[in-house]
Design a binder for these strands. Structure first.
Lengths: 295, 295
DNA sequence: GCCTGTAATACCCTGGAGGCATCAGAGGTG
DNA sequence: CACCTCTGATGCCTCCAGGGTATTACAGGC
């Protein structure tokens, strides 16, 4: 009748590795069990999921489709679990996520005033988990910075702010009033290139292929600034972030041909919680009519 | 580890009825089994879901939360099942849903030309199932008419078209060039009031409470027109629909204070299928630059 | 021809989901 | 107040699905 989430989880493990033995190991079960479960899933769905040649294992089109659907489904199931537990603990809590540099206080205060009995919490996110926390139920609504993977989310634009290049104080470009992306082509970018898509378009053509890979293992703003100060490279950040996390040994320069960073509200598109809509309205309102922020 | 979808289904059955016996009956299982399963679910989540007083059963806040999350999760699971089966049958098929009066041919043809090996199918929907078919996997993308419940969907506006009142040919208003909603206040609306939200705002105040309820059991356009012709009442439809399903014994009149009907593209926000994005781009493009339709 | 790596098969054991019969407590009723 | 009814909970049985171990079957490489 219903699909079994356990079987789906097993399937995903195999589909991601294309190897029963290693998948079984990762799942902490014996390999024959996994073989049988997958076969059972195939029989239940009346569909072949893997093309098994004795030597290799690969996905059929149906398997590809299942993988694409199973991953978000499992995430939703996990989110459901988390939200129920949260709902039990704090009968009335509402959690707002935000990226560094975004001011959430006015909107949060407004929501508290309208619902005196409600506990409103805030959670700081990073570039990597800003959408994750929404989909897994840790926050009810989040202030996010584009670009993001919008799958499973509803997104409403709020505002945008210019981005600047953050450099060590002694850097050759440190004194400039204004630079272009091409001036930075030889710099090492200390952050996820997805956060600065234009970087790829313009800079990567100039870069030698053998160059050291990005792979930054630090995600918080403070860590990035620390590395910039140490001269390991540069980062590109929205102006408000730099203004907030100011420190003497790094400086910043506006970059002309870098489009502004778009700040949006995002929430789980499958949910129906009146507070989400209410908060979104408040926040949108504040950003439209309220006092303009520093940038 | 994972939640059990069967238990969730059982929970929803009880939560919707607030009665174990009747829920068990609806699920075709014995009542003690259901009691035990719910209790097991509560223990697994470490949360009390129902407040059981010996005489009544009601939901706790955690239960409310679970109900809100479980319903879409079960729907997603069902959709996953359906999509996998479809992916197995037609290795490469893409299905487009559309409401009556919307012309999909050019976009479908364009997609076919770009992917000669792809089977592109179209499905006509009704007001009631236009979003359902998207969420349960019967279509990959749908042309929908607002207002809709956007939960679980991504929606992109396409175009809008005026709406008209459809009347029997002999109706007192049949000859008019233009009427207002208030002229229709005494008419019987033969369709889901949600389809014409303004009807509620304006007309219901004028209506006596004891009036016959809407509850229309017919949904296809042809059926509505049949009933209008028979003098059972009137309907409000987008102009293109009336133009398409023309018949001699019904006529239509533009309504001044009825905002136009918004046509959008909508697809499952959790999915990642490049064809969806491609089709959306084609359709948006056609509607922006292509030949303007009849209305 | 033999060894290795990989999935499938054979067989067993346990726990959980289902059924039936019954119990227990809260309200209503004569 | 005794009794009946309605409703969910318990006790006990059966059976199958999911887990484990041992082994087989087959394709390639040496």
């Amino acid at each position: 009748m219903d699909v079994d989430l356990r079987k789906l989880r097993y399937f995903v493990a195999v589909a991601e590795r294309l190897h029963f033995g290693r998948a079984a190991e990762a799942l902490h079960i014996a390999q024959p069990v996994l073989s049988r479960q997958i076969r059972a899933l195939e029989e239940e769905l009346k569909v072949q999921l893997f093309a098994r040649t004795r030597r290799a294992t690969e996905l059929t089109p149906a398997g590809e489709q299942l993988l694409a659907d199973a991953v978000p489904l499992l995430a939703s199931a996990e989110a459901l679990r988390r939200r129920v537990t949260r709902a039990a603990r704090g009968a009335g809590t509402f959690t707002v996520g935000f990226m560094p540099g975004i001011i959430v206080t006015p909107a949060v205060r407004a929501l508290r005033e309208r619902h005196p009995d409600l506990t409103v919490e805030v959670v700081r996110t990073t570039w990597d988990d800003q959408t994750e926390v929404i989909l897994d139920g840790r926050v009810d609504i989040g202030y996010v910075r584009l670009p993001i993977d919008q799958r499973g989310l509803r997104v409403r634009p709020l505002t945008s702010e210019p981005r600047v290049a953050v450099l060590p104080s002694g850097h050759r470009l440190a004194g400039k009033d204004l630079i272009g992306i091409s001036d930075l082509a030889d710099e090492h970018l200390l952050q996820d290139p997805d956060a600065v898509p234009e970087w790829r378009d313009i800079a990567t053509e100039l870069r030698r292929p053998g160059r050291r890979r990005p792979a930054p293992a630090f995600h918080a703003v403070e860590e990035k600034l620390e590395h910039v100060a140490a001269g390991h490279g540069i980062v590109v950040l929205p102006l408000s972030v730099v203004a907030f996390y100011t420190r003497p040994d790094v400086t910043y320069v506006p970059v002309t041909d870098l489009p502004p960073n778009q700040v949006c509200l995002a929430w789980d598109s499958a949910r129906r919680n009146p507070l989400i809509g209410e908060f979104a309205a408040i926040a949108t309102d504040l950003h439209a009519t309220g006092p303009s922020p520093a940038w």
